[in-house]
Design a protein around this nucleic acid. Sequence first.
DNA 1: TGTTAGCACTCTATGTTGCTGAGTGCTAAT
DNA 2: ATTAGCACTCAGCAACATAGAGTGCTAACA
Lengths: 348, 348
Amino acid sequence: MKMDDRKQKVLMAIVQDFIATAEPVGSRTIAKKYRLGVSPATIRNEMADLEEQGYIEQPHTSAGRIPSQQGYRYYVDYLMQRKELSAEQEDLIRRQFEKKVRDVGQVIQKAGQLLSHLTQYASIIMSPQIGAGSFKHIQLISMRPSQAMVIVVMDNGTLHHRVIEVPESITSADMETISGVLNAKLQGLTIESIKVTLLKEIYLELARHKHILDLAMDLLQESLMLRNEDKIYLGGVFNMLNQPEFHNIEKVKTLLSIIEQEKMLCELLSNQGDTGGVTVRIGDEIKHREIKECSMITAPYSICGKQVGSIGVLGPTRMEYAKVVSIVESMTRNLSRAMERMIFGPGK
Amino acid sequence: MKMDDRKQKVLMAIVQDFIATAEPVGSRTIAKKYRLGVSPATIRNEMADLEEQGYIEQPHTSAGRIPSQQGYRYYVDYLMQRKELSAEQEDLIRRQFEKKVRDVGQVIQKAGQLLSHLTQYASIIMSPQIGAGSFKHIQLISMRPSQAMVIVVMDNGTLHHRVIEVPESITSADMETISGVLNAKLQGLTIESIKVTLLKEIYLELARHKHILDLAMDLLQESLMLRNEDKIYLGGVFNMLNQPEFHNIEKVKTLLSIIEQEKMLCELLSNQGDTGGVTVRIGDEIKHREIKECSMITAPYSICGKQVGSIGVLGPTRMEYAKVVSIVESMTRNLSRAMERMIFGPGK
DNA sequence: TGTTAGCACTCTATGTTGCTGAGTGCTAAT
DNA sequence: ATTAGCACTCAGCAACATAGAGTGCTAACA
């Protein structure tokens, strides 16, 4: 793993130049553009070594070199220095997140648009996985003569509702009563702690309204079981087509076919390591073989310190790692804050 | 506009063959495959006429003919006969819509997936535009010591909620009271009919809770004003890449750039004619010049007879009109039903 | 008068060839 | 250890040739 200083510089030059131009980099270019103070011939020697060690490769004999996966990895781990965001970028992000939004979906969507706009790659954002909560409040509301709405509020701030059929004989007052009893008996319970005896008790008390009760309990039960499902926002795929690596239709096809499968996207985002920080996965390190020659930079965001979802950027392996890492990091910070405000109110 | 019988047959052959193969159609092919009982030479004469009249064109001298926009139009208006869905397809659609789903978004999404799967083109579906309703019920719920949730239920079955900050001194009982007063005074009102005098009255009655009242009224007002915004589901773009007309990257790019702009999609769907039935727009007839060489087949769906949204299929002008028209039609029927069930409960 | 066979003509698509230039690896001189 | 010099390789491009699909026109035919 040890690498002499000049080799590092050469590797760095190759990676950077290739990221910038998408053209294989020759020894002359490096000597001229990166001023290492040695001649192309010397650099050729270094390159031969680097190739032998697997950091770079040659598309064909008479071409320059391009970084191998291992080369990118080395660059990301040891050579790259983060490129801090410009003041405008910082500002843009902050302002985007200050905007008033209606629901979580909208935050996610805005964040995705911003992320793909800033990076010029595709962005993937997962909506927060707010675990199954416990029951907070239930409310029956009469909507039309024979229809009512059941609303269940969970303590994590989510709510579920459904329209049900009720006998015409049921009055608003009856519904109040039912709501009242259920609230009194069940408040704060999780699915595990709802005892059969307790249910019996309720049914006894509200025997007259068994039918409605059944329907209400159905929704309640579902709500308690439900981990709110994965929603995924994806944007900026269009950007990818500007990358020369996607000038070939077949690649675009495989890319799109993946991207239309939400499940796979979820896996891509969830499969990240342990760290809690920004993760960079290069080429094969993304486990799905359908995605070739792509890299992902992902990071979790959190609500009150608990990781609840992830955001990510998908680009060609020839990605501007230094820039994207900073952007992703800044985004998670801002997104976490926005989510907290969303769910727990504007807070302090 | 009048066209002799054999010409029609020739035009039909050209359109159908081109739709099937994407290759310019020659006179020999028509004579052999479509058995018009005349020789290629005769067909060549007919084709020369058709070209003169603008129904077909020649990509270059030594190629066969392809339909012009006008040619497709004539085909769709006079020649095409609907291709009824196969029993399996009918069945597939029905079963998809019978599945239990959680919310409107999910119905839309499922429908979109199905539509693009059946047609093999891109599908666009608009979520229902349920107009601003009138107020049905408001409920304040204490969530944490200094936080409460306001829920507003509208008579059209939609609901809005928000977490607000409240003084710690407010009790659950206070909230019940506030909810109660608001419900009693405001039930059934629309934004226009809420009078200042009435508001004064409420504020007087609940003077102690002015702060909360303000927050609750904010949400209420927003809810009353809000036409629920356009959400658009889009799927099957991937399918389009299988069409030979999109083997050229530039076209894919313009297609994708459009497709990522939700606004434009909305316009595309809304801009349909009057008819209430299936609308076919070919090439330029879609007003956006960005979309070249595409056709759209759209149709509105309705809730209780009122048109609330549209679904559409976007494909190349060389689209299987006969098939897609039937599919779109069947989908709107099923979607309308599913929406009604969703919003008004399972009903009869 | 409408239909058809025959034929010359056009033009794309495909393949072949040869050349150019970028880039390499090696060797010998510094 | 570095570098200049040189022979070698190979993708990419342009120029050219060829094949084949399809046409339009003409003249013969029913």
